[in-house]
Nucleic acid binder design. Structure first.
Lengths: 176, 176
DNA sequence: GATCATTGTGCAACTTGTTGCACAATCGCT
DNA sequence: AGCGATTGTGCAACAAGTTGCACAATGATC
């Protein structure tokens, strides 16, 4: 649904091979649209077949050979059209909240440790975002593109901040 | 993965038919583990076959006939075991943030309207949560079960609050 | 008593995402 | 030259979620 658009965005920022794309997903786009290399290769194949991207001709076509892709005009148009489409927020589906609800019914043994573990994970993620913020957005961005990108990062920061404060409260509540 | 556990939790709270379950998902468990009636019926079938739940004998077995399910001991044990399992937070996958990132590349035409639309949706959701809070958790809960349930609701409230403040900021940023 | 909306159950086809693995080229080391 | 680590591409099987539809019973309405 959205993965092809995530890939088009990444490829517009910089033409890449499948593996490069995978790595960039791990530390950028993947923060808010995660994916595995298998899925990325599959989508690259489909996008190429659909005429939205093409492999740069320099590369030899053989297995184990690096293959760089770039976005074709049709791909850019497709992405621009998608950006303009309205789309409702997806329904929430969070295993931890569900688990808490189940714990209310069958007992909450050991859930405190799980909450603390999650807290640490979210704190680590927040620290990562803060680093990116310092590295890329200090001083404050001036171009429209960078303002948008900064807003997206702020989304990640605020989201982690939400989790941290909720988890902290939950832990205190359960202990008290 | 988690849907069967969501169903077990709901059925433990109160034995129900498929459609009742679907309705309760729409205004309770579904707030953090959404599902459709088709999926619910499918899972009910699997859970019954696996011996975790059973249809109450009162009902006639015919299509279009209401069929109530209750949880068997095996189902409760299964749920309790699941609650104790550690599980990492799922990677974020948010279309709106992705869309903003794409907008940074192909242009942000009309994204302001989309942000405002989402803001309204999240405000409505928050209002719904507030109502539930007032109805069910005022005065403050005393039992452990209710404390856990209230924490889950607080999660929903805080999450909507995060979105509202992020969206408000984003709208201001883009206008300014 | 025919028809229509509602309640209720469910199948089938499809799309998306996950997991596990296979295989090819390249580079550094000894 | 041979070996292993790394880089790189990709298939196959499966699990989970979505979409569209079919069909049965019940109660209300004319």
């Amino acid at each position: 649904m959205s993965l092809p658009h995530a890939i088009l965005t990444a490829l517009l920022e910089k033409p890449s091979s499948g593996l490069e794309l995978t790595r960039r997903f791990d530390r950028s786009i993947g923060y808010f649209w995660s994916s595995t290399h298998q899925q990325i290769y599959r989508e690259l194949g489909k996008l190429e077949e659909a005429g939205r991207i093409r492999a740069l001709p320099t590369a030899v076509t053989a297995r184990g050979q690096k293959k760089e892709y770039e976005v074709l005009p049709a791909g850019r148009e497709e992405l621009a059209a998608w950006v303009a489409l309205p789309e409702d927020p997806r329904p929430v589906r969070d295993p931890l909240l569900l688990r808490m609800r189940a714990a209310a019914v069958v007992g909450a043994d050991g859930i405190g440790a799980e909450l603390r573990r999650h807290l640490a994970l979210h704190e680590a993620q927040l620290a990562e975002y803060r680093e990116i913020e310092e590295r890329n957005f200090t001083p404050a961005p001036t171009t429209d593109e960078d303002r948008l990108r900064y807003l997206v990062l702020r989304g990640g920061i605020d989201l982690e901040t939400f989790w941290i404060s909720w988890l902290t409260r939950a832990i205190a509540d359960l202990d008290g």
